[in-house]
Design a protein around this nucleic acid. Structure first.
Length: 727
DNA sequence: AATTCTATCATTTTT
DNA sequence: TGATAGAATT
């Protein structure tokens, strides 16, 4: 029953011998998640394990939720309470929360994200009188995280030379500050958990006795520490069911090691590796393109992904003049699809870097296309959210100095830098928190400080009987945050919306039966913005990086910015290892598509305020040309010389229908000399040469056009005066 | 203390 | 180019 609908390989993976560890090599779109969830259900139904005896580790919170949902569905019972499903980080957090004393953590330890981590390092550098130019915070962050990933604490390091010494010094300071303030960064969650389990045998044995079956998703993306963590937890007796695809390893930059798959086979005595090679997702054309690209990588474990799906369209390549043009094209296609009643949420635009989303966002907004962006500025990174949470933190734990500093003078209450320095010295002297120092401070602002103390204490009293979301709502009001943002004309409305959204997020969170403030705060940091993004009404086009698209699928996919230098990224062109990772990223991008795949490239792109041109991505050239339909007609595949673009670029009809008549972008503009031009047309100017029409504006009698000329960039011309002709 | 100005950074990807 | 943090100004 459980196994119906599964193919032979999937079935043998699900029903694999429970007395040994298993490695499943699962190609893209081969039903990996289904195998994982069915395996869990199968273990339960056949009494090989109870829900409590299973630990499932996923790569993202999103994947964890999806898996929880699907297991509940198969088993017809909600499994959230008993079955542990989560990321390495969230499971480590859960364990640390249960054993904070043994882990030498304060009861209210605070998880910090990499942003906070970097800011903290900056502050420490300042205290140590080190120039950021000589000691880049990013480098130090890497240094600290890398060492933590190798299990190395600052004290155990033997620095070599002056520079190394300073690095270690910063690491030391960082550690002692974190310990003092109860701060835990992402890597620390794992390392601290690992240390807890390896030093406290009774705790380790308890978990070993519990988790008889450990399932790991996206195994190719595990790093050293995670691998050791699994090994420790599994011990000699428990069995690990690992699923991965070496071709989809895209996190080596973060320390992920594909070689963990080989190590796993050796260390866990894996007898037979099961391969899932039938792809159920994509058309043969899409799959062939993906296979052709990934074949250029060396050292692959190797597999032969195939499909029975029906032959369909070729891949479409559109070579745009600029990034705006690129977005125009996408809008046009989406409008066509929308007219046919296509569900917009099945469309995704994938890009290499977050910054690329902006052009799309702007145009989508302008054209009234619903869209949703994942990633980018994270919800919990916004200042208003951080402020609100800082109040919450201080109310829960008055010795949270980080939170104190964030809100002591926000909204402004007359407490300046001088008062804070005073407070700090009092706190140091008497060994008390900054908050307690307020009560004993003397001086000009002591009145204001006491007022602040009263404010917090009052909040404390008034929220005792409130649940988490009412507490938050009350805090936003009582702290004066709400009033402050109501006054703010510039961005107040949006910030208030976000604060409301925060209350909603808490409500959703509370529904799952979790209601400890500390737990919420910690998880808030771990949740990427994906789930906490403002919900969009109805269906919306999905905009996301390729990294965050891993594990997802869409009917129609646009891959934007296929230019050498952007994708593959400049920083990855030097080393073959890195180029191969970029290629895997391209492989992941392509294999997200079910039916339609568009490859997009801009001949020139605005970067750092400057217009720069780049050749077509080498990855596109790795796709056999018979699989590609070049609808731009700008250049043949392989031609990377944008100066050679002289032919008609508009054999693809690229008109844009305006949403409102008053929209300045119009589809067609009629000139007095009987010439009709529209957006997307290539025109010839006597002086500037060939160019492409990007915008048409009509303001009264005045007609202007933004035209992009090769080598010159965008120019706005008065169409009644400028001498242009259609090519 | 609030507003405006200016300088600097950012664009590789995420838990 | 555009966001933002810190400086400078009122």
């Amino acid at each position: 029953m459980l196994l119906s609908g599964l193919n032979k390989e999937q079935q043998s993976a699900v029903t694999c011998d429970v007395s040994s560890s298993v490695l499943v090599l699962a190609g893209a779109g081969s039903g990996k998640t289904r195998v994982l969830t069915t395996r869990v259900a199968w273990l339960i139904e056949n009494n090989f394990a109870t829900l409590e005896q299973i630990l499932a580790v996923t790569f993202t919170n999103k994947a964890a939720k999806e898996m929880q949902h699907r297991v509940s569905e198969i088993l017809h019972v909600p499994v959230s309470k008993n079955l542990w499903i989560g990321t390495f980080h969230s499971i480590s957090l859960k364990i640390l929360g249960k054993h904070s004393v043994e882990a030498n953590l304060p009861k209210f330890f605070q998880v910090i994200d990499s942003h906070d981590q970097q800011n903290l390092i900056r502050r420490l550098l300042k205290n140590l009188n080190l120039e950021e130019d000589n000691y880049p915070p990013k480098e130090l962050q890497k240094f600290i995280n890398n060492h933590k990933e190798l299990g190395m604490r600052a004290d155990g390091l033997a620095p070599d030379g002056m520079r190394q010494q300073m690095y270690v010094k910063v690491y030391q300071e960082y550690e002692s500050y974190c310990n003092q303030e109860g701060l835990v960064d992402f890597t620390e969650l794992l390392l601290r958990c690992y240390e807890l389990l390896s030093t406290q045998k009774d705790i380790l044995n308890m978990y070993r006795a519990r988790f008889r079956h450990i399932l790991i998703d996206e195994f190719q993306d595990t790093n050293d520490l995670q691998y050791r963590w699994i090994k420790l937890l599994a011990g000699a007796d428990n069995k690990v069911f690992a699923v991965g695809d070496d071709d989809q390893s895209i996190y080596a930059f973060r320390g992920a090691k594909v070689s963990n798959m080989q190590s796993f086979i050796r260390d866990f005595n894996v007898g037979e590796t099961i391969r899932l090679e039938q792809n159920y997702r994509s058309t043969p054309e899409i799959l062939s393109a993906a296979n052709a690209i990934i074949a250029n990588n060396n050292g692959r474990i190797g597999k032969n992904l195939w499909t029975n799906n029906q032959a369909s369209d070729k891949l479409h390549l559109y070579e745009a003049y600029t990034e705006e043009d690129e977005a125009f094209f996408v809008v046009d296609e989406i409008k066509n699809l929308a007219r046919q009643g296509y569900d917009l949420s099945r469309i995704a635009i994938l890009y290499r870097s977050n910054a690329q989303s902006r052009v799309f966002e702007q145009l989508f907004y302008q054209q009234g296309i619903a869209y949703q962006v994942y990633g980018g500025l994270r919800f919990f990174d916004r200042q208003e959210i951080k402020h609100a949470l800082a109040y919450l933190r201080l109310v829960v734990n008055s010795s949270d100095n980080e939170a104190f500093l964030r809100i002591i003078n926000f909204p402004a209450r007359g407490i300046g830098a001088v008062s804070i320095v005073n407070l700090q010295s009092i706190a140091d002297e008497r060994q008390v928190s900054l908050f307690d120092a307020c009560k004993i401070s003397e001086g000009k602002s002591s009145k204001n400080l006491l007022k602040f103390v009263t404010l917090i204490e009052n909040i404390k009293v008034n929220v005792v009987n409130l649940d988490l979301q009412d507490t938050m709502a009350y805090i936003i009001e009582a702290s004066g945050l709400k009033a402050h943002y109501e006054e703010d004309k510039k961005s107040g409305v949006e910030r208030l919306e976000n604060l409301n959204e925060l209350i909603n997020a808490i409500a959703i969170y509370n529904k799952d039966g979790v209601n400890s403030v500390a737990e919420f705060l910690a998880n808030a940091v771990l949740e990427s913005s994906g789930d906490t993004q403002k919900p969009t009404l109805g269906s919306a086009v999905q905009l996301l990086t390729i990294h965050s698209a891993k594990g997802l699928e869409f009917d129609t996919v646009f891959i934007a910015g296929l230019e050498d230098g952007l994708f593959p990224h400049d920083n990855c062109l030097m080393e073959n290892k890195e180029l191969e990772e970029e290629r895997r990223l391209m492989y992941v991008a392509i294999t997200r598509a079910r039916k339609k795949l568009y490859l997009l490239r801009a001949c020139s792109r605005l970067m750092w305020g400057k217009r720069q041109s780049a050749p077509l991505s080498r990855f596109v050239n790795e796709i056999p040309s018979e699989l590609i339909n070049n609808i731009s007609g700008i250049s043949q595949i392989g031609s990377t010389d944008i100066n050679g673009i002289e032919q008609d670029a508009s054999n693809y009809n690229h008109g844009i229908a305006p949403k409102n008549p008053e929209t300045k972008i119009s589809r067609v503009s009629l000139l007095e000399n009987d010439l009709t031009i529209k957006i997307g047309d290539t025109v010839k100017h006597a002086k500037f040469g060939n160019g492409k029409v990007l915008h048409l504006n009509i303001d009264g009698k005045k007609m202007t056009g933004d035209i992009f000329f090769i080598g010159l960039g965008k120019k706005t011309l008065d169409l009644n005066i400028a001498k242009i002709e259609k090519c």
